[in-house]
Design a binder for these strands. Structure first.
Lengths: 291, 291
DNA sequence: AGAGGTTACGGGCAGCGTAAGGATC
DNA sequence: GATCCTTACGCTGCCCGTAACCTCT
């Protein structure tokens, strides 16, 4: 009975699948089989009921599950307490919204590399709903994304709020004076992907307009900016992602009275026994995002 | 960081010695060295201060010590909770007083073999003070001996009480009628080894007699009985050890008014992280001793 | 000089991945 | 028949024990 076997068992019992546990643990399915078989032989007890398609822990297995989760949690806490950060050697899969990539993610990565030099971070950039799914499927360990993730098995921490603004090329002549929304929407708007919360909020706000304003959506925030820079449309995005362009005068903030809700970004991670590192990184992210 | 490394570390930190830990864990000193070095590399922290003759844990090491003890205790509890007794595979070193060997130890061994078929028990028979020392030195894991063991790091459980009696060969003509102590001590007494509590109690009781009664002491209880059977003296011992001889009429109980204190036997085991099995066996012993 | 910890080296075994086999829906 | 778990097999790497070395008292 070692930590590794307990970890494998916890994932098999939680996911109800040997293959799923193998995928989660970056190993092969026979390796998982072998560890479970060995654990059962070691304890002299059947732990997993394999008779059905979806495997499930037996009564004894459920007993072990709670105990194993506690042991793994305590061992992770102990590691964090006595071990040096320099010695943390692992790979953490991080999902991030593009907004964050263009704001404080570089600072965060720098900070993590300094504090955990042996920690490898695998970054996945995608829109919030995709990341939320991957988080639920345990395919990423930590995500910085828009709004809280629903689901009981997820822990979260609010990181930062970005106000939304209309960003336009100065060539459009909309900057430097108060402008009504009706005037703005004569030019196409360019914003986040259709499946995101800001797009939905914008669509709701524009519902009454006739003719219906044109709204372009891009899954790539960099592309949104590019389109605004080229005068194709007005970007609805956090000014924070375009600091350089605004400072250089290539983009300006359109002074619209009506405000859209801020974008609240949160860190989310599964409340799994290996979530301790994710929580530590979330705290670091909070520090960096707050600057 | 696995259970084995934590166990090795706990013993090194507790005993203040690599060699001592190796002896306790039935392995070699280099193996202990390697495990500690590996644990330190794994955590990226120095855990043991080797600068002095008696090694000691560093500040970080003390942190790890408390956490490791808790983890080991919890894992032992988890094993006991979900694992089957048939699967318990270990060697437990048991120290027993000779009295118990001659009474309920065979029943106890039988019972343990039934409940824990893969558990090997190494029995050491000796007098209580020797066993208490060996217990303190972690050279035995569990002891059934006379009276409680002093020491803060020891847990105990009262098992049984044996009344003391004077056992004499019927040829001496002392059985079957009330006899005063003064008459008894005309014959030499034969009892436990000089270093034991019953011997001390007897010596105190006989302090006022003149001439001083002769008292033979034997480290072997079987020899005490042999001497009584041969009429060399009167045995002061629990009748329970001589049931067969009494039933066969080869020994009789001398009816002396003044009674000596009962012998109270206890199970004792170190409050070490691996004491869980010892505790379970002590409970079994309590059941068998109570019959 | 002796006791105690470290380093070096060789053998054994557990654990993993690949590949083939069997059971269940 | 497709999916999922088990079994078989070869390999790598860890861990242990033996032995030689270093250090401190």
């Amino acid at each position: 009975m070692d930590f590794r076997s307990l970890e494998v068992f916890v994932w098999v019992a939680t996911l109800g699948s040997f293959r799923g546990a193998a995928a989660k643990l970056n190993t092969t399915q026979p390796a998982v089989s072998q560890r479970i078989a060995q654990l059962e032989a070691d304890l002299g007890v059947q732990l997993i009921d394999r008779s059905r398609r979806a495997v499930a822990p037996t009564a004894r297995g459920r007993l072990l599950l709670t105990g194993a989760e506690r042991l793994l949690r305590l061992s992770a806490e102990l590691r964090a307490e006595v071990g040096s950060r320099e010695a943390v050697k692992a790979t953490l899969r991080l999902g991030v919204s593009e907004t964050i990539v263009h704001t404080w993610l570089p600072r965060f990565i720098e900070r993590v590399s300094g504090e955990y030099p042996k920690l490898a971070i695998a970054i996945e950039v995608d829109i919030t709903p995709v990341l939320a799914e991957r988080l639920a499927a345990h395919e990423i360990d930590l995500a910085f994304l828009l709004g809280p993730v629903v689901g009981p098995a997820t822990r979260k921490m609010t990181l930062c709020r970005f106000p939304l603004a209309f960003l336009a090329s100065p060539a459009l002549g909309l900057c430097g004076r108060p402008v009504g929304l009706a005037e703005v929407v004569r030019v196409p708007l360019v914003t986040f992907s259709r499946r995101t919360a800001p797009y939905a909020a914008l669509a709701e706000r524009l519902a009454g307009f006739d003719p219906r304003p044109r709204v372009h959506a891009s899954a790539s925030l960099a592309t949104v900016l590019r389109m605004a820079l080229d005068g194709i449309g007005i970007a609805l995005a956090p000014p924070a992602i375009a600091e350089r362009e605004i400072a250089a005068g290539r983009l300006g903030i359109v002074e619209v009275e009506e405000s859209l809700p801020d974008l609240a970004y949160t860190a989310s991670w599964p409340a799994a026994p290996d979530g301790f590192l994710a929580e530590a990184l979330a705290k670091l992210a909070l520090e960096e995002a707050g600057r």
